[in-house]
Amino acid sequence: MTAAAEDILGTAAAWKAEGRGVALATVTLTWGSSPRPVGSQLVVDQDGNMMGSVSGGCIEGAVVKEAVEAIGDGKPRLLDFGVTDEQAWDVGLACGGKVQVFVERVG
């Protein structure tokens, strides 16, 4: 493995080792045109710092907010985003696709 490749799990482990609270968000389902494939991941710390992506930047803001809450309460969450969804329209999933994201605390 090279350090140049984007290493989300490596970042999660490193942040955890620094004593930060860490959560992982993973794309678990997609419908239609979605920018990132199933399995794509975003790592988030308790302050909202993030690496990786689960969309083209459309839903990361909302996912980070949920991830920070998951770090706090330890409960996993399943988030749905799509054009038929009021909230997704707000956060602007402009591609017209739908995506489901699983968020959980690490450790």
Partner: peptide
């Protein structure tokens, strides 16, 4: 995700 799971991956 458990930390040991992450390390095993």
């Amino acid at each position: 995700m458990k930390l040991e799971t992450l390390k095993a991956v």
